[in-house]
Amino acid sequence: MSILFDIAITAFLIISGVFGLVGSYGLIKLPDPMSRLHAPTKATTLGVGGVLIASMLHAIAVEGQVSLHELLITLFLLITAPITANFIAKAHLHRHVERDQLPDAAPDDCWAVHDIEPFQAGAEPSTETTK
């Protein structure tokens, strides 16, 4: 039984290490910003997930008790990684992509990243929405 736990923990650790390395390497290697967004948000979350699963198995095998801290971290990372990726992609669309390069946003006039007014300090926030 113990050797099975050993093999499982080792496999999870090696898989997670390879995934983490691939995610960070893809961040350098991939050509344009949108595909650079793809590498770390998927691969590194899998990498951290592998380390946390290995840690849970280690707690069960060595100390003989179920540890639930890791599930909290995994859950938090799984929830926040897509939100972060969405925010960075939105910022990239806002800064680097022109309005006419995007596909048609029917039924609205334009995409939401181009539908905002630039912020001015001290200005009154406009209550009516621009349509």
Partner: peptide, 21 residues
Amino acid sequence: GVGDRVLALDTMVINMIALLV
């Protein structure tokens, strides 16, 4: 660009979590 730097910082945080665990 700035977006790439922010993305790299985010990846750095995630790698740091893995190192801590």
